[in-house]
Write a protein that binds this DNA or RNA. Structure first.
Lengths: 254, 254
DNA sequence: CGTTTTTATGTATGGTGTACGTAGTTTCTT
DNA sequence: AAGAAACTACGTACACCATACATAAAAACG
């Protein structure tokens, strides 16, 4: 991975090509590979052996082609990763059946959580700009709908959506471990914070930490059946409380 | 970077060594290198040229030693990265002067935001377990204090701390771009969500997105002077609203 | 038909992390 | 004092990585 050139127009055009699907000039031989095939193969590799196993060579052999042929369809590994991540994200959940905006948001968060749980390598994909793929944007759109419906205005809804995305991803990032967890008993969510270094905890230097550590992780599931673990559910619920209060205050005062 | 061995006890012991500082058996020649020197050199490299420039060879030449000599003090690049990240995190801010828990949390978030802004490569360090370094734990401890003081119990405080950490990091991750931003005009916060692909936005498929996109990013700073940008400040404030309501409800009812 | 464009392949370059062997240095044991 | 043992730094070597570039074949156009 050499230094990225990636002036912004460059990347923009590349992404555009990957959206529209790169119309071909119909002169040369018919391509036997496509961006979609390559991206799907990349997803297969990452699903099977993790992000660190995802190399150009590996994807190429997965498809039975030479390594360099990939570069006829994809400008480089970085872009391939973005496309693969978007493909792996898949379509967002349908929240039309939700009763209120709270449940819609919770369902959305639960779906994202489940997705990240089943594909932890998505958390390792380095993201260096706002979501740009069709699926990522669809997820964002589905989240914005209930937020707008709840009464948030544009900037607030955008901020809230960013907030929620960050919370789910961040919580998943340290709750679901991606590399070592697979080797251990698999599944169980790794006790939130700080189990390994407990013995070093100097009570004088980390009083709050030691106090909190005493409280055992209850491993409670959320009361509603949307699959949110407690660590995530509590924060999301408090946040939604705050959103509700905010719009209530505005609608009552003016 | 080959596959990681890292059974959990392994990593635990490695981390332990790096905490305690690896007592030497006093048999061989006195070492001229130390973990601290190496970590600081790594931080220097990352500060200067970004995470992708941080290689063992680069760190070694930075120190005027051979590449392989590093491995006498550090078991591998992954651990070096963790140590470097902890060193780069530095000590947490002192929140003793804050008036209430809200201001304390805001100050904390602002300090973290500023730190990530000045060292964006920290956002690229792959984190695969809970914070474990002394500085990281200190940051966590400082955040837990006001949360506990506000009236949260152990599990809630832990969840809230995780929530806030995730929010700041996640928001920074897509607001501060790390690789391409340095080349562009530098500084200005990249318009939150989705500027590049606006032309592809099909109104039928992304109605909420297009609606939100119309609302221009006001680029407002937060009202309080703690350096939080609006996108982050709004969410944090709503979250704190929710926390306040939560403890208020508990103290009044039980 | 030849020209032109596009695809797939092969080769080559400069980078990566790190396993391993060697030499030299210091301290502990005898 | 002499030897053994432990430890550090170094050099070499290997496997792998992304990708620049040249080559050859294939399809469509003039």
């Amino acid at each position: 991975m050499t230094a990225r050139q990636e002036k912004d127009p460059d990347l923009q055009r590349s992404l555009a090509l990957l959206w529209a699907g790169r119309r071909r000039g119909s002169r040369g031989p018919r391509p036997k590979l496509s961006v979609e095939q390559i991206a799907q193969a990349a997803v297969r590799v990452a699903d099977a052996d993790g992000l660190e196993a995802l190399s150009m060579q590996r994807v190429a052999t997965e498809l039975g082609f030479s390594t360099m042929s990939l570069y006829n369809h994809v400008p480089g590994k970085d872009l391939l990763l973005e496309v693969a991540a978007d493909v792996a994200a898949g379509p967002p959940p349908d929240l039309a059946g939700a009763e209120d905006f709270r449940q819609a948001v919770r369902l959305w968060a639960g779906a994202l959580w489940a997705g990240l749980r089943s594909r932890p390598w998505l958390l390792r994909v380095p993201l260096d700009h706002a979501p740009a793929g069709p699926n990522q944007l669809a997820w964002l759109d589905r989240l914005l709908r209930p937020l707008l419906a709840a009464g948030l205005v544009g900037g607030e809804a955008r901020s809230a959506a960013l907030h929620l995305t960050a919370v789910v991803r961040g919580t998943a990032q340290i709750s679901l471990s991606t590399s070592s967890e697979r080797k251990r008993a698999d599944g169980l969510p790794h006790a939130g914070l700080t189990h390994a270094v407990t013995e070093f905890l100097d009570e004088e230097e980390y009083p709050a930490l030691t106090a909190v550590h005493a409280a055992e992780t209850g491993d409670q599931q959320s009361p509603d059946g949307d699959g949110l673990p407690f660590e995530l559910s509590f924060g999301v619920d408090r946040f939604l409380d705050g959103i509700e209060g905010w719009v209530a205050a505005r609608t009552s005062s003016g």
